[in-house]
Amino acid sequence: MAKRRQFGYIRKLPSGRYQASFTAPSGERQTAPETFRAKTDASRWLALVEADIARGTWIDQRSSMVTFGVYARAVLRDSAEIGPRWRETCERNIRLHLSALVDLPLRGVTPTVVREWHAEALRGKGGRTAIAQAYRFMRMVMNTAVREEMIARNPCQLPGAGLVRAAERPIATPSQIIAVMEAIFPKYRTAVLIAAWCGLRRGEIAGLRVADVDLGAGTISVRKNRIELLESTAAYDGDPKTEAGKRTVTIPPHVLPIVKMHLAEHAGAERLFVSRDGTPLRGHALYQAFRRARQKAGLNHITFHDLRHTGQTLAAQAGATLADLMLRLGHSSMVAAKRYLHVVDGRDAEIAKALSDLAAHGNAAKLPKSITMRS
């Protein structure tokens, strides 16, 4: 019969090895995951468990045996802050980039395992952005496991593994903006101008409604972001990622007549941009139209998102401060929020006018005349 100790129990098995067990804080009897060659080894293990329980750092070994794949999908299912688009991305990354880890128990995902997984992933054919996304998701899952006391510490400790250092983005000139705009279908031309001169994202453009345009004030209000899932045809209007994304942007005067013409000739009853059948414009359709237009204009190095980057750069050249840019483009951070304090009313309208001045007196002197909504 096992001899009673102050903490835990040790008994000798018929094999000659020793088994250690103890009563967990939950009141359940738990056994060590392995047997011990000597009784002193079993006693040492129990002493460590007792110390961990006293410090509040004890981890239930049974819970940490849950596999990473099962736990990751449970976290993905139950996290209210994860939207459908990011959930779809994480599910794809589990399938494509984290498959080597899904059958490992949580406690088996060690810093060494994570380092080796990351190195192997980088040697493979996967894109750097997807690998960084997969690492960020794994780190989030393991942080949750730490909070829920499934594991003692997060094994994702690789500096910079979740970051993507993108190359410097190209900047289009005003004349190149016009070249792409004139090469695209007329119903998409205003979208190109809004991206370049107002700094809206593709999803923000697709989410615009007629009511978001105030011709009298010369502004566009961003209230929604059109979100499309990659592996289905589902699309819906969602809120911008941050409160700063909800903003009102002054339209540069040289673009305002084109927006007005678009409202008269191409807008839907409710949506500013619509497809042929009158349904909300899909961002992918706009992207494909842009690709054909840039090829026609000989500007294959310019992406649609580069138009937004161009608008930010041109606004800076027009005299916008960092706080002005953060406000105009819908960026949000603690540092930027402090700088919003010195942005005065009317400053955005001044920036918009300066953008038109830049377009009119730069290398696109004939800009107002060359812009047209008709092919």
Rank of each mutant, 00 (worst) to 15 (best):
Thr372Met: 02
Ser232Lys: 03
Thr233Arg: 12
Arg115Glu: 15
Cys198Asp: 10
Leu208His: 05
Ala51Met: 08
Ile227Arg: 15
His262Ser: 10
Pro240Gln: 01
Val213Trp: 00
Ser232Gln: 11
Thr313Gly: 06
Thr112His: 09
Arg92Phe: 04
Leu96Tyr: 08
Leu48Gln: 12
Glu148Pro: 00
Leu281Asn: 01
Pro14Met: 14
Glu243Gly: 07
Arg107Ser: 12
Ala316Pro: 00
Lys369Ser: 11
His97Gln: 11
Arg328His: 06
Phe185Leu: 15
His97Gly: 06
Ile371Leu: 09
Gln295Asn: 12
Leu158Glu: 03
Trp197Met: 11
Val249Tyr: 07
His305Asp: 06
Thr248Tyr: 00
Gln176Gly: 08
Met373Phe: 01
Gln30Leu: 15
Glu350Cys: 07
Ala365Lys: 04
Met140Trp: 11
Glu81Asp: 10
Tyr287Met: 07
Asn300Lys: 08
Trp197Leu: 10
Glu228Gln: 07
Thr372Asn: 04
Tyr9Asp: 11
Ser375Thr: 12
Leu341Thr: 15
Asn225Gln: 04
Ala24Tyr: 01
Gln288Trp: 12
His254Arg: 10
Thr31Asn: 13
Ala315Gly: 04
Glu270Arg: 09
Ala269Gln: 14
Ser99Lys: 09
His342Phe: 08
Gly278Asn: 13
Arg347His: 10
Asp214Lys: 13
Pro186His: 10
Gln288Asn: 09
Ser63Ile: 13
Tyr9Gln: 15
